[in-house]
Amino acid sequence: MQKDLETKFLSDFEQNQNIAHKICRLYTTNQDAHNDLFQEITIQLWKNYPKFRGDSKFSTWMYRVALNTAISLYRKSTRQVKTQDISEVEFRISSFDYDDTEEKQLNELYKAVHKLNDIEKALIFLYLEDKPYKEISETLGISSVNARVKMNRAKEKLKNILNP
């Protein structure tokens, strides 16, 4: 039983690992911190996997656990240097077959999101991932209406950073 659970977890996680990577990129600014957070997310996912009953999709559940880990249970991020290491982010996401303007925009976006606080980051991330308000409010534990209001504020803030 334990073995089955483990195999299932490993394959589910492997397929959805991009979610965790994206969160790590939003919440950290260098590769070491990225790896640390990724590992912490992995630990938390595995620790909580027995409680995952499959009443939602694995990815939905993963968004919640990974975001909560990034928001609250992560110790090392306090050591993070405030100044942003741009070249490293660029290095982390650059790719040959990728549109040049979009690459630039993506870098700007990451840079801007790094300036938001942890909760705003979560809101913006869920927006970028096209999550419905229902899911956003469940993930954060606030009402739909409230999620909508706060989302608009977070978006405004982001726009101001992107286009001052």
């Binding site: 690992q17 992995t42 982390r92 790719s95 690459e103 925009q105 993506l106 976006l109 970028l128």
Partner: peptide, 22 residues
């Protein structure tokens, strides 16, 4: 749009690595 089109992580983690990390 840029976000949606961003490339997948290059340093993908294998299930063995996930196992070790977990």
């Amino acid at each position: 749009k840029a976000w949606d089109n961003q490339p997948e992580e290059k340093n993908k983690v294998s299930s063995i690595d996930i196992y070790k990390m977990a």
